[in-house]
Design a protein around this nucleic acid. Structure first.
Length: 609
DNA sequence: GCAAGGTC
């Protein structure tokens, strides 16, 4: 008997379907001489400190450097403390029974570092010795699965991938457990002051932005604008120079040849530029972009969006939610026209779905090379029935984005009129001549400038028009806004570096902080620790958060670059570099940070709020 | 009581 093990039930079911195996058993399926079972993500984790003899929280134990890490069943919190998750224990028993009967195991966990770790931890925990082969696919279509089974790889091909995964796991344990105890013990508060490779740089970003915003000194500046009249249609034109003093701006005002100063046609049209601009449709959603959109449009937290999306996924209404890819492969794209047709009767999108039906679809989101473990989020085409309003809202964001992503470009007519009246003034206006993808949600363009005119009259170069008004604008420089969940999620993708270009940001995905699946949990952890709080939409540090930031801000543990460096080393391990030298560096770093925090925490000021 | 990673 061959046993196939997947990372999660949905994938096992997909594979079983391709084989034509339909017999459902408790915790697995079977048919055609194969058995299909699954994990639920990580069933096993590195054992807690007490499993190595480090009892209690005690300075004497630090740094805790286990000689050999142990594995333990995933825990759940109950009123009696942490206990083995009963569901996990049961599934492990089922897997053990199947492995015992197996002649061969086929590893079908997700094609990536963590997928490898999920299987290997099970395999080693169960002390299994059976031979195993690896299924390596990046799409779960029938064709991709069949293809993958024709090309099974030797299990040992992925030994170095496992090594890098295991190193990642141990390193996070060593640095996180030791730093957390060191700081908590030395600060002398009885509360937990947790630190970690991901959560601490995240906290640092929130605190740094908060302080920058709070300490920002606004500087006043002055600009001049005029109102110009074309046959009764009045538009605003702005002098683009920013002046530090009122007096300088006043000189510009004084030169304006407006009607009040006795000049009937004092606005000379120097030039009129009108050019169309194409705005391509947005990419399909991955989890992070959907969380950002849902936060902006509906005010949902990252955690709420993930929960709602998981619900929709379990109801088979949307594809796998925790994806980091905004693309689909050609195989999935082939099914998109049918999918679009399913929305012809949708109350909000019906018209757009009908318009798209049979039309040429944009292929911007189609790129098999950019599909990683999972493709972008799509509706499955199943018809939803009586969704709660929140679930419906998320479902509509997914469905609407699909229609947008395959729609035509939005064509904008951008007009720029330069008016001379003493100095030069510029009027700009954007008119959408063909809405394209923007017709789906039909919402105003968010990055429109304040001074932009809704529409501009037709004027000709060389014309002289009356200037009906002139005004001095008093403005102030503004600080960067505090982080909210949307802007924080975006910043985590690029580890705090500010990159606006969508494609460029996408290229940095692998060097971001955390993963799509964990970012919501990171935010919740910081809130649970009383490091940050939600105030309206913003995420603000608490006194405790700021105190922790103050202690760690100059240490590597607070810097996103730590993850970048680890990732570089882990990638080298994956391609065969020595595991030992990295492990020694991590141990040395653990000793350093523990020693420093034991000292630094003593001077820490925790103001209890 | 603690990390980050995955998922019901």
């Amino acid at each position: 008997m061959k046993v196939i093990i997947a990372e999660k039930p949905s994938v096992a079911r997909e594979i079983a379907k391709v084989f034509g195996a339909t017999t459902k058993k408790d915790g697995y399926m079977e048919g055609k001489g194969y058995t299909f079972t699954w994990a639920f993500g990580h069933l096993l984790q590195l054992a807690a400190p007490q499993e190595y003899g480090f009892y209690g929280w005690n300075v004497q134990n630090l740094p805790m450097l286990p000689l050999k890490f142990k594995l333990a069943i995933r825990k759940v919190k109950t009123k009696d403390g942490m206990v083995d998750d009963p569901g996990v224990r049961k599934q492990l028993d089922i897997i053990k029974g199947l492995f015992d009967e197996a002649t061969e195991i086929i590893v079908a966990t997700d094609a990536g570092r963590e997928g490898e770790l999920i299987f290997r931890y099970i395999y080693y925990y169960l002390k299994c010795k059976k031979p195993f082969k690896r299924l390596w696919i990046s799409s779960q279509t029938d064709e991709a699965i069949k293809d993958g089974f024709r090309n099974l790889k030797p299990g040992s091909d992925y030994d170095t991938l496992f090594n890098s995964a295991h190193c990642r796991s141990q390193s996070d344990w060593l640095v996180g457990m030791n730093a957390t105890q060191a700081l908590s013990l030395s600060a002398g508060t009885r509360s937990v002051l947790s630190l970690g490779r991901v959560q601490t740089p995240t906290l640092a970003m929130i605190c740094a932005r908060y302080l920058e915003n709070k300490n920002f000194v606004p500087e006043p500046f002055y600009q001049v604008s005029i109102m110009v009249d074309k046959d009764g249609q009045v538009f605003r034109a702005l002098n683009e120079e920013k002046f530090k003093t009122k007096e300088e701006a006043q000189l510009i005002i004084d030169e304006v040849r407006d009607t009040a100063s006795g000049v009937p046609d004092g606005g000379h049209i120097l030039s009129v530029e009108a050019k169309p601009r194409k705005e391509p449709p947005p990419l399909l959603h991955d989890l992070s972009s959907l969380q950002q959109e849902a936060n902006k449009k509906k005010g949902f937290t990252a955690d709420q969006t993930l929960t709602l999306l998981q619900n929709l996924y379990e109801s088979k209404l949307v594809t796998y939610p925790r994806t980091g890819s905004r693309y689909i492969g050609d195989d999935v794209f082939a099914g998109v026209p049918v999918l679009i047709d399913k929305f012809k009767d949708h109350p909000e999108f019906g018209k757009q779905a009908t318009a798209l039906s049979g039309a040429k679809l944009s292929k911007r989101s189609v790129n098999a090379k950019k599909v990683t473990d999972h493709h972008a989020i799509l509706p499955t085409g199943e018809i939803p029935y009586q969704l709660s309003p929140d679930r419906q809202a998320i479902y509509d964001l997914v469905a609407g984005r699909m229609l947008e992503a395959f729609h035509q470009d939005c064509i904008k007519e951008i007009t720029k009129i330069t008016v001379q009246s003493g100095s030069n003034f510029i009027a700009s206006g954007t008119v959408i001549s063909n809405a394209g993808w923007r017709a789906v949600f039909n919402e105003p363009d968010e990055d429109k400038k304040e001074e932009e005119n809704a529409s501009l009259p037709k004027v000709k170069q060389g014309e002289n028009l009356p200037v009906t008004d002139k005004s001095l604008l008093e403005k102030q420089t503004k600080p960067k806004p505090m982080y909210n969940e949307a802007s924080l999620l975006k910043a985590l993708e690029t580890a705090g570096k500010e990159i606006d270009d969508e494609e460029l940001r996408y290229a940095m995905k692998d060097s971001g902080l955390g993963t799509p699946a964990t970012r919501a949990a990171i935010i919740e952890t910081l809130i649970k620790r009383d490091y940050i709080l939600r105030e309206k939409k913003n995420l603000l540090p608490t006194a405790t958060g700021l105190a922790v930031y103050d202690v760690v801000k100059d240490h590597r543990i607070a810097q996103a670059e730590l993850t970048g460096n680890w990732e570089k080393r882990l990638e080298e391990i994956r391609s065969g570099a020595s595991v030992e030298s990295f492990q020694e560096e991590i141990k040395a770093y653990t000793r350093d940070i523990t020693r420093e925090l034991l000292k630094a925490g003593k001077g820490m000021m925790i103001v209890k709020t």
